[in-house]
């Protein structure tokens, strides 16, 4: 999963988190798609999934705080998109445990996560940057 400079919002803390998220999801996909047998991957996938669950919540919280600080008009819509994704990740994680590490479930999750994250950062998050630029508030959160 390749990070592209055009994804940057101009808000250093959020951009750092986005890059880290891309790096972590990329590493998750590398393990998920590696040739190693499934049982050997499962422990690493669980660890990575647990980290992502925590990191995604932390990142979404910071991004939403930034949106509030600039009175972003799409805040409620964006917050719901985040909440839906957190719920989805949490449900998949639970199903993964309950299904005794079903591979098909995790491959399905990986494919959706890949497309979702790119679209979210490349499209939805860019609307925040567009608004901040218009208001002359870009890059002011440190």
């Amino acid at each position: 999963m390749l990070w592209k400079d055009r994804y940057e919002l101009g808000v250093p803390r959020i951009d750092r988190q986005h890059k880290e998220l891309f790096r972590r999801v990329g590493a998750f996909l590398q393990v998920l798609r590696s040739e190693v047998c499934w049982n050997e991957k499962v422990i690493r996938l669980h660890e990575m999934l647990e980290f992502m669950k925590r990191y995604v919540v932390e990142h979404f919280r910071d991004e939403e705080e930034y949106q509030k600080s600039i009175n972003y008009p799409r805040y409620e819509i964006h917050r719901k998109i985040h909440a839906d994704m957190v719920k989805y990740v949490s449900e998949v994680s639970k199903q993964f445990e309950q299904s005794d590490n079903n591979e098909e479930l995790m491959q399905q999750f990986g494919g959706r996560l890949l497309a979702w994250l790119i679209n979210h950062v490349a499209a939805e998050d860019q609307l925040i940057a567009d608004y901040a630029r218009k208001k002359g508030m870009s890059g002011n959160d440190g």
Partner: peptide
Amino acid sequence: VDVFVTSAISEIANI
């Protein structure tokens, strides 16, 4: 094509 690819493509159709 496998379940990963189908899932990613489905998400793009959704988007």
